[in-house]
Write a protein that binds this DNA or RNA. Structure first.
Lengths: 343, 343
DNA sequence: AAAGCTGATGAAATCGATTGCATGAGACCT
DNA sequence: AGGTCTCATGCAATCGATTTCATCAGCTTT
């Protein structure tokens, strides 16, 4: 009712319960160290005053912000939003807040310094390590070893904490699905090549083709950048081909979406004229026309696991060495975009 | 290199520049109050020590966290992710961090208290006021008038700070587009009814129909809840109708997506068998099959404006009365999902 | 009954930055 | 030259919670 009064502090509670602030503090953080009788009085005083802890003061004293940063290359991407959801949830359960940092394209590292050097946050979940993770590592180490966990598709330096999907194997299984349907002419629309890392999905594709003794046609290996428009562009290419593949494995769903879009415009249909397998299983995949066959990543689990690992690292429950590593298995979801080839 | 050393404080800088901490503090927050010579010495000292401000200490002293909370009903929704992007960007430019709070469905208000009562955040951007905004208002007021801005489709209580799109008018224009194509049998798939508020999009639809002397058929007024599956379900309904509308205005793109999906499954096609107009222009709308005709909301602007307003409220540059109000005009984007009716 | 122990509690320092008040040096005025 | 004013700067209190160390009451032990 009475607006703009300053919120009650631990002092108010102490006075109200006729104890010292030290006792109140203990009652809150380690109740077993306070006698039952005083604890009750303090509980009452807290209720009576409507006290809530001042985070800033606690952070200052404890040198811990109870906050993590989640760094995304692109919040707008539907793939990441589900993950964000899981991260916020998991962090919340441990009493941590989640700050969002959207990547500054021009400044691969500086943009993160502020959060940690100013003790605004205790750790970082970094998605999509297209930035120079080792450089970041040394930057963060210089100011007191900020723990961070990377969630990425490509396997990065072995000393990093990493949560990933079994991209290589999943890609092999995606190809296997097409082969099982009878396809032999199979193309691939890959994501971008990141630094010198092995592109796991492309590698899986290539090895699966070899394992099946299928010809790898250079024209059928196209490169995109994970957004729908690059799938659209790849389809332009596809349409110009005189000898077209009968199936295509796309490195993510958005590119598949863009590809279908262009192919339909040209009067061809999927899966009659070309079968398509995507990757991710974004929430809309199920409702596309045709519904998209795709490799589902456990996005919830990616978010949850990485956050859980980060927090146990922050709180010292997990030792920094050896690094945390987790690989989640993807799951093939068969829908309408794949069918046997129309001879 | 030397890991886990404590970060330099303002004390270190002061010592290094042979001045008091007070002077360093002033050099940082109001440089004009410090002589040029000392300012230079301080700048050097800052560079030499690698000093960065400790946010927790500043927050405690200034009673201000330089952080805002963005509360979303559902981070996973692609509509919100773009907005989040804009909010993070705008906040960042003012030096504010953005905490994400994903709505707890069971607890419409409590979930936000913590952020503010613990002075973790200075203000709130609340999306989709399906929660009881007035109740929230009084909750927040009880602990010192936390400023907040609502971004919502429906017009809520006049005393709230609100950023919105011209939903009513945009809906009228959507219908007008269908009418101009020659449609007379037009249906509507609405979003959920929120409390006692007027559903702006539905109201716009109804009034446009009346203005054109078109019959409002009860069967053709369907209700969904803004997710694709509810569009899918609505299409089931549609397919069972003996007398079907030739066009449908959907209250958002996701429902349109679900609707098309089911209709295609049944062997009908859009726009030949039914024209469809969506709302929002989510990033994928352009790449659907067929590309979706839709009312584009300026999502970037919604995010930017609301954040800007919130921050000027926090910093006292804007007076709380009268409340901030902004309505953004939507824009019709004509694509392939609408066509003249097939006789 | 004296000594030792345990467990609950309080006093006060501390985290790092800000800011009201005091001080002193120099500029300016008469 | 004496007095006033301004500007740059320093001292020290302060924000609110935590934590070390000391104290003291009430037991147990011999």
């Amino acid at each position: 009712m009475v607006a703009s009064r300053r919120p009650p502090t631990i002092q108010d509670v102490a006075r109200h319960a006729s104890v010292s602030t030290a006792t109140v503090s203990r009652a809150l953080s380690s109740p077993e160290r306070v006698s039952v009788r005083t604890r009750e009085r303090i509980d009452q005083a807290i209720a009576a005053t409507g006290y809530t802890l001042n985070q800033a003061a606690q952070s200052l004293r404890r040198q811990r912000a109870k906050t993590i940063v989640i760094a995304l290359p692109n919040v707008g991407n539907p793939f990441y939003s589900t993950i964000l959801d899981a991260v916020v949830m998991e962090a919340g359960e441990h009493g941590y807040g989640v700050l969002v940092a959207n990547r500054q394209p021009d400044d691969p590292i500086e943009w993160l310094r502020d959060y940690f050097f100013s003790s605004r946050a205790d750790g970082l979940v970094l998605f999509d390590a297209t930035l120079d993770a080792p450089a970041l590592q040394s930057q963060l180490a210089a100011h007191g070893d900020v723990p961070f966990v990377v969630v990425a598709d490509e396997v990065v330096e072995p000393f990093l904490n990493l949560v990933t999907s079994d991209n290589y194997d999943a890609s092999r299984r995606a190809v296997q699905h097409l082969v099982a349907l009878g396809h032999t002419k199979i193309g691939h629309l890959s994501g971008p090549q990141i630094g010198h890392y092995r592109n796991e999905r492309t590698a899986g594709f290539i090895d699966a083709m070899k394992a099946n003794d299928l010809k790898l046609c250079d024209d059928w290996l196209m490169r995109g950048n994970h957004v729908a428009s690059s799938g659209f562009a790849a389809a332009e290419n596809f349409l110009r081909m005189t000898n077209r593949p009968s199936a295509l494995f796309c490195a993510n769903d958005e590119m598949a979406l863009g590809f279908i879009s262009r192919v339909h415009q040209a009067g061809l249909t999927c899966p009659q004229d070309v079968s398509l397998v995507g990757f991710d299983d974004i929430s809309m995949a199920e409702f596309l026309s045709p519904p998209l066959t795709t490799m589902r990543q456990k996005r919830n689990e990616l978010g949850r696991l990485s956050t859980e690992a980060l927090i146990s690292l922050i709180e010292g429950r997990r030792k920094p060495q050896p690094p945390f590593r987790a690989t989640l298995r993807c799951e093939l979801v068969v829908r309408g975009s794949t069918a046997p080839p129309c001879s």
